[in-house]
């Protein structure tokens, strides 16, 4: 945790967060049609992902030993794990513009954590459409796989989803932070975001260095595959057990890099 955050206390930050978000909501609600269309766009995107699986499994019975419902499980899981990044950390997409045109300087002059202030400015409502589709898909897969639901399992599921989210957020934090060093860094974010689309496939389809790459360098394997392993397969891989710790560590690293970039920021012009 950052020193300032400790000094101020979580309650202080929570109350500020809701104040900032409320402003964002007010401005968004004045474009109601935009809200509905964006939501529809999000849902359509997720439906198309579903249709893709449906078409694939019309022709093939398994993908690398995973059947239709197991793949849907991974898909639904990855959609839910994406939601916190989509809803809460969406302002990362605007970071490079703010840095480029100099408006980022305003965040440096507030007596609160820069990362916190910047990120809390936007809450992306359409991410909730993703949450809805993800939950429906996961529930459908869960039901058809005949899995049991117990208190323990529910607790595990939430923990696993949070783990996946941490990786997701950390990847995009790092991608966004590149703009402090690179001028034209939009493509880094776009490319990384595309990678996360493949988080829905089991990492075991990749061979050799690519499996290593997607496990340890761009850890999309931890977004859905490793955290959801406990529900789908017997046994417990070491990486699944370690994934929450990795997730917290990776998120912390991404936060430090982001802050390091922000501290290097010297504004544009004088």
């Amino acid at each position: 945790m950052n020193k300032e955050l400790k000094k101020r206390g979580l309650r202080f930050y929570a109350s500020i967060y809701f104040k900032i978000i409320a402003q964002d909501f007010k401005s968004k609600m004045s474009y109601r049609a935009d809200f509905i269309i964006s939501m529809l766009g999000m849902i359509l995107t997720n439906i198309s992902g579903f249709v893709t699986f449906y078409i694939m499994f019309q022709n093939f019975e398994t993908i690398n030993g995973w059947n239709y419902y197991e793949m849907l499980f991974l898909y639904g899981f990855s959609l839910i794990a994406l939601t916190p990044m989509q809803c809460l950390f969406d302002n990362n997409w605007n970071l490079r513009y703010a840095v480029y045109d100099g408006s980022f300087i305003k965040y440096c002059f507030r007596p609160i954590n820069i990362f916190f202030y910047f990120i809390s400015e936007v809450f992306d409502v359409k991410g909730l459409g993703q949450l809805l589709m993800g939950s429906l898909t996961l529930g459908y897969a869960w039901h058809n796989l005949g899995l049991q639901m117990t208190v323990g399992k529910a607790f595990l599921l939430v923990a696993a989803l949070l783990t996946g989210s941490l990786f997701m957020i950390a990847i995009m934090n790092l991608a966004a932070a590149t703009c402090f060093w690179l001028v034209n860094s939009g493509f880094v974010m776009v490319t990384m975001f595309k990678f996360t689309e493949y988080a829905r496939y089991p990492v075991t389809i990749f061979q050799g260095i690519f499996r290593g790459l997607f496990t340890f360098v761009i850890p999309i394997a931890f977004v859905a595959y490793y955290p959801s392993y406990i529900f789908l397969r017997p046994g417990l891989p070491v990486l699944t057990c370690l994934s929450p710790l990795f997730g917290i560590f990776f998120f912390w690293v991404s936060y430090r890099v982001w802050m390091l970039g922000a501290s290097r920021y010297s504004g544009t012009g004088n």
Binding site: Y31, A33, S38, M39, G41, M42, S48
Partner: peptide, 18 residues
């Protein structure tokens, strides 16, 4: 008719790609 550029675009992209 609408200012929802993102939503309109994403729908088009998804439909065309699939």
């Amino acid at each position: 008719y609408t200012e929802s550029i993102w939503g309109i675009n994403i729908m088009k992209e998804v439909i065309v790609l699939l």
